[in-house]
Design a protein around this nucleic acid. Structure first.
Lengths: 229, 229
DNA sequence: CCAAAAGTGTTCTCCATACACCCATGC
DNA sequence: GCATGGGTGTATGGAGAACACTTTTGG
């Protein structure tokens, strides 16, 4: 028999921490568990990895099945494997975090699809398993990485105003930023393209709409440029 | 039967990328595989996770069993789970990276213990499985993180000279640093303690020996200080 | 006394920060 | 015409980068 089969095997799951910015707050998507253990508790979306499936594929599949969300930014976070983290027995979980912009209308589909709901990260319910720890790890990663990688744009619609972008960073970083300095810096990086259009329907001067230039970002990255907010 | 047992289970392993700086180069510890698959190939030390064992514990155990190394800096890197990464079947591997200083004398024990050997990261042999990819990921992490976390000290003996520390950074980062600027910056952080002793037995002026102040680092970290080289 | 590395200051440039007012638009 | 956010420039301080010579020690 092949050596692989000589060893006992933990079960393997994926769990996803999905972030969005909504109503001026950073929020996380949770689902209400239907079954034991932790039936009726809130938990991260996730589930078992299939035998022939990539880990990231499993994360995307579970996310779509449980929340209706697809095609979002998704990155592996950390693997949690304390032997006692699941009362059913040994279950190791590969955690991912995801970013989604709620302007796309996907939200409602997601929220309706099952018992899923958004919670502000500073007002979370009790969570099943070690999901509070996973969520804390994801939050730390997001807050750290958003400063040196262009993650912020994943949380906004394709076209956005400079004020929206600034508010996003203020919400994630938890502190106010100077408007003029923020604009000078972000525009100085040469990663924003003025779409020529303007925001409409607001009772004040219309703001210009920009989009993030991914192509140019990859180019600059290769040349040793580093993003920094 | 509990829900855990309804699912097919991949096998679970840990793999370790152990870095050291030796003879002015960054090197990695590899072992020569005794068995199929990839018998006689070089590979990362690692092996199967036991059923009641923490992931990090498994990594430390395998490292000690296969290379004799213990008590080193170890951090989870990434989890690799492509379905075809192991010809024996589905094997998911949680990768760790470790840092070790070779002045401690552990090396020789390690090298002698089995078919283990150090290779410069820019002159690696062909590796088993997807270990080349794991190693590349670890190298990227090390080079990135060494700049904003005090990892460098893990690669030096407890007491070291400023020149040794500077050489270490030059080797890892792959570029020359200015001596006066490096010293001003590193001493300005207040994280080095002058031991009062000096290096002896060199045919030139004796250099002062310093040690890293971990306690103070943790203190400053809590106060919002950020390390930066 | 010679070879080898240790140790030490100053200048300049650039970037982060602090700060306040006029402009365009919808109602 | 007024309320609301959009958009803009300048002065200052601190940190990074460039740069060369004297000191100490062992052999």
């Amino acid at each position: 028999m092949s050596p692989t089969y000589e060893h006992p095997r933990p079960a393997l799951t994926v769990d996803c921490v999905v972030f969005a910015v909504e109503r001026e707050r950073l929020e996380v998507l949770l689902i209400r568990r239907a079954r034991e253990p932790f039936a009726a508790s809130w938990a991260l979306p996730g589930g078992f990895v299939d035998m022939e499936e990539n880990l990231e594929t499993a994360a995307r599949r579970e996310l779509e099945e449980e929340t209706g969300l697809s095609d979002l930014f998704l990155e592996q976070l950390y693997t949690f494997g304390r032997p006692d983290r699941d009362p059913r027995g040994r279950v190791v979980s590969v955690a991912y975090y995801a970013l989604v912009n709620l302007a796309g209308g996907q939200v409602h589909a997601a929220s309706d699809a099952s018992a899923a709901a958004w919670f502000p990260v500073d007002a979370l319910p009790a969570l099943a398993f070690d999901h509070a720890e996973i969520l804390a790890t994801a939050l730390e990663r997001l807050r750290g990485k958003v400063r040196y990688a262009p993650l912020g744009f994943e949380l906004l619609p394709r076209r956005f105003t400079l004020t929206e972008l600034q508010r996003l960073y203020e919400i994630i970083l938890g502190r106010a930023l100077d408007k003029r300095n923020f604009r000078r810096k972000i525009q100085g990086m040469g990663l924003l393209v003025d779409t020529g259009d303007a925001q409409r329907g607001k009772a004040h001067r219309a703001a210009r709409l920009y989009r993030f230039d991914r192509r140019r970002y990859r180019q600059l990255e290769r040349e040793g440029f580093s993003f920094w907010v």
